[in-house]
């Protein structure tokens, strides 16, 4: 399977939800769409699923020498952002219904269901009505519903939302299993630490536009001028004053009197230090490479003035 998205645009009334977005995904990859609420991730997902069509640009999905302008239903496993199942029906009834709609025989559906219920430790609760489950467990049932029929492509819109850290880790394992089974996965998320562990490629979006794209290493390289400095002061300083400095893009407080500063591209470290000394005595200065979370925040911070302009 290969998925190529070329310069797609989508507008709803006066809102331009997606602006000139392009990317491609290869078979067996985990591809992450990242961005804040309203970045355009769900709009892209709905175009991939075929619920809406792009105003311009193209989507091409190639599978076994066939080409489609959206993911065919038989190849798709989907966890929508707006999700739910039948609360007054049992886990088993919900899953068997959806599996049979996907074309699975009852016996095949039962085998698959038992496997995934075991993975998510829900076997003992298979006859419980969905409304009796915690939100986290309901989310797990939704994830099972998306993959029960072994689709070639799984699209998961915010799979980590509503889950505690332990269950988030279980979802990471679940996604790794999907990859091991040869499925291609597209997911959207805010949880950078999770995505960092999983995604082969990622697309950072803001206000409908691509901000950063590539593998984690490529994104780090793209942001290599994006230097970060961890500093400690002998006394508390005003963060707002630091943020107003031209040499600094963003400020994040790490602990009392300790801050992580993202430096502007042209800023010299020595000049920054001179400026910082005006606010107090420095007890720690350490340069560091940014992780995905920090790159994401910095990219968002950089993107804000453009959007305002």
């Amino acid at each position: 399977m290969q998925l190529i998205v070329t310069a797609i645009n989508k507008a709803y009334s006066s809102v331009q939800a997606v602006k000139n977005v392009s990317f491609h995904i290869n078979s067996g990859e985990i591809f992450a769409l990242l961005g804040p609420n309203g970045a355009g991730k769900s709009s892209i997902i709905r175009m991939l699923v075929g619920m809406t069509k792009p105003d311009s640009g193209s989507i091409m999905i190639s599978y076994q020498e066939q080409h489609y302008d959206h993911v065919p239903r038989r190849l798709l496993g989907y966890l929508p952002e707006d999700r739910g199942l039948y609360p007054d029906k049992s886990i088993e009834k919900n899953l068997l219904y959806l599996a049979q709609l996907h074309g699975l025989s009852k016996s095949k559906a039962l085998t698959e269901m038992e496997y995934w219920l075991d993975v998510f430790e829900l076997t003992a609760r298979r006859h419980d009505e969905l409304k009796q489950l915690s939100k986290g467990n309901q989310q797990k049932v939704q994830l099972i519903a998306a993959v029960l029929h072994q689709p070639a492509l799984v699209i998961l819109d915010e799979p980590f939302s509503g889950l505690d850290p332990i269950n988030q880790e279980k979802v990471v394992l679940f996604l790794q299993q999907l990859k091991a089974k040869g499925m291609t996965v597209i997911l959207s998320a805010h949880q950078m630490a999770m995505v960092e562990k999983l995604a082969d490629h990622m697309l950072l979006m803001a206000q409908g536009q691509v901000v950063l794209a590539g593998t984690l290493q490529q994104i780090q390289q793209q942001s290599q001028n994006q230097r970060q400095m961890k500093v400690g002061f002998s006394s508390e300083v005003n963060m707002a004053q630091l943020e107003q400095l031209d040499a600094i893009v963003s400020v994040q407080q790490l602990q009392a009197r300790h801050y992580l500063l993202t430096l502007a591209e042209q800023a010299k470290v020595s000049d920054c230090l001179k400026l910082l000394l005006q606010y107090g005595e420095l007890t720690q200065v350490e340069m560091q490479s940014a992780d995905l979370h920090q790159l994401y925040l910095a990219a968002m911070a950089r993107h804000k003035p453009e959007a305002a302009a």
Binding site: R73, Y78, P80, D82, G84, L85, Y86, L98, L101, H102
Partner: peptide, 13 residues
């Protein structure tokens, strides 16, 4: 209201 619709759309026309 139970938000099943979008899930079903991905399975049946």
């Amino acid at each position: 209201q139970q938000r099943v619709t979008e899930q079903l759309y991905a399975i049946v026309t």
